[in-house]
Design a binder for these strands. Structure first.
Lengths: 342, 342
DNA sequence: TGATAAAATGGTAGCGCTACCATGACGATG
DNA sequence: CATCGTCATGGTAGCGCTACCATTTTATCA
């Protein structure tokens, strides 16, 4: 004589309850929910009615255990507060909120080791897909990604050798485009100002350098960076440093928009005319850039779209329709504004 | 004759493998991992050695299924990109990254219905705790929270009647303090400018109104709001609207810092002197406020700390040490700066 | 020293679901 | 009309873990 049933679980209806009520086998209920095409229309309707009546919700844990596959997207980003990644994450969430998938978010704090640690936690959970920021994983991380047994999408950048799929744009080209814009606008002694030089920032700097060298304008003293985290305050300080080194500076390409905003404020504070005395270009084109006074030129990056597209590609791969194009370059757009209208 | 073993799971070691290697029962391994105190030191060491050697990682799904309790914190916020909530979320992640708990993040998009939907998804997963923003849940949501069977922490606000626990500060007091500061500084025709008037914004407005009425300065035409989402651009537009209605405006309390920044830029653009002609106060004290030119007065709110504290309280409750103080007021701090130095 | 409590350990039986295989019904085929 | 393949459905046996209880060992006390 076995116990009547249920000690745990609090009495939520199970698939067996639905099956009983619909007069079918449990496995048929399971199929009706996951692969409706493989169940006759009659039964499908009956089962749906039972599900609705009982308020049945499948237990994702039991499902994951039985199928050795969790309906989870693992997402790794270097920061939760940086608006750039917040937008990517928002795109991911918006794309996933309808379906059966959950999101498991990890914050790597710009640390390769932390990324490894998180992958070691994520991978054994057999996620449905992994989305990671950047292409500069450590060898260990890369191995973990390759052996994860699920679609992997690296985001934010393009690059030659994706683990699996890749969605982003070229930071090098972005940096070069921004710098060329300043050159075309007539600026000559154009500085680069950047904080926390992560790999993407490095590539933007490389693009800056390429453009400057091509124009015969490069001078290493034009570069001012710091390992500190980006902030508006830091933008002010870095412009002061840059001007101290190079008083004749007449333009700056800022590694991101926070820095650019700080540079703008410092110009106001020092009564330097923007754009006459100094031209300013930012990177990412956060909303504030167009509202600044004067409006600030920036490179608009498709952050939200990167989130959406990465999910779309992962979903396609999960459905067995692996996209032909495994590397997607979403590009960027120069937004010229008053801050560079000499 | 049963099949040898393992079709699924990819051959990861299980608790049974560890038990075999350590020469103990599986349940003892389970205990050694979860309640080390209940296992003798000898066995604990043996088991730890086996775990290390095999690289065993417990399967969270199996654990959740067997114990009817997932090691998951459900977190509901109205926005992922709003820096204010991003900081709260960061605090939560930072507090949880060491332990066994995962975070399940939900974006309600400032919608009560969406919040209900998400709770309906979260609650059946039997999370270890739920953290939700705000105290204005729908009756359905409130019922879901009350019957969730886990610690619940409402965050961002204080209030009289928490579902369970509460960490935040008084937005009414914040609005009043900001407004009183302007009054004390000598401003008289002080406007309120706000976008997306969620419940917390409403309370800040109420605080503004209380201060203005007390000083005999209130006039409904001083209030300018819109249901649109906050942005810097919107701050500029709203100040224009406010000045059109009320050209003699000599100060503004902005519902948040983005709006305040827009107001500042609009003042620059219209050549209105800040702080002489117009005083500006923001809300939240994002980093940029101190770096603006002139630096902007704001109300600093303990966002990160709210995230940390909410986790601490939930963890205490999970451990059976429910905090005596179920409502924690973390306060706020007025940061007076040049934008209100008349 | 024997009785008793307490601590340490293990066995069994699921948790709710799905992979795998079996079965039966049905139409197509020669 | 027997044979075969296909489709719809169901039964069984776990997935890896822990709750519950049983059992053994060890401390505690009169």
């Amino acid at each position: 004589m076995t116990k009547p049933r249920s000690r745990r679980g609090g009495g939520r209806p199970t698939i067996a309850d639905v099956a009983r009520k619909a007069g079918v086998g449990a496995i048929t209920v399971s199929r009706a929910l996951r692969e409706p095409d493989r169940v006759s229309q009659d039964l499908r309707r009956q089962i749906q009615a039972a599900v609705d009546e009982l308020g049945y919700v499948p237990d994702p844990n039991a499902r994951a255990l039985a199928s050795a596959r969790a309906d989870v997207f693992g997402v790794l980003v270097p920061s939760l507060t940086n608006n750039v990644f917040a937008e990517v994450v928002r795109g991911i969430y918006d794309s996933l909120s309808d379906g059966p998938f959950r999101v498991q978010l990890g914050n790597t704090h710009y640390s390769g080791l932390e990324e490894e640690r998180l992958l070691q936690v994520f991978a054994p959970q057999r996620p449905a897909a992994l989305i990671v920021a950047g292409i500069d994983q450590t060898p260990t991380s890369r191995k973990l990604l390759e052996s994860a047994g699920c679609p992997v999408v690296q985001v934010m950048e393009t690059g030659p050798d994706p683990v699996d799929m890749l969605v982003g744009f070229s930071h090098f080209d972005g940096g070069r485009t921004a710098t060329e814009h300043l050159i075309k606008a007539g600026y000559r002694r154009i500085g680069f100002i950047g904080a926390r030089m992560d790999p993407r920032s490095q590539r933007r700097l490389a693009g800056y350098r390429a453009a400057m060298e091509r124009a015969g304008l490069f001078d290493p003293r034009l570069i001012t960076t710091t390992p500190l985290l980006s902030s508006v305050t830091l933008g002010r300080e870095l412009l002061r440093d840059a001007l101290a080194k190079m008083p004749a500076l007449d333009g700056v390409f800022c590694n991101n928009d926070d820095i650019a905003l700080g540079v703008l404020f410092e110009c106001h504070s020092a009564a330097l005319d923007v754009p006459k005395t100094i031209g300013i270009v930012g990177f990412n084109d956060l909303e504030m850039m167009q509202a600044a006074f004067p409006p600030l030129t920036s490179i608009r990056t498709p952050r939200y779209e990167i989130g959406r597209r990465s999910v779309a590609m992962a979903l396609a791969a999960i459905a067995g329709r692996r996209p032909e194009q495994r590397v997607v370059d979403l590009g960027f757009e120069l937004k010229p504004r008053e801050s560079t209208e000499r």
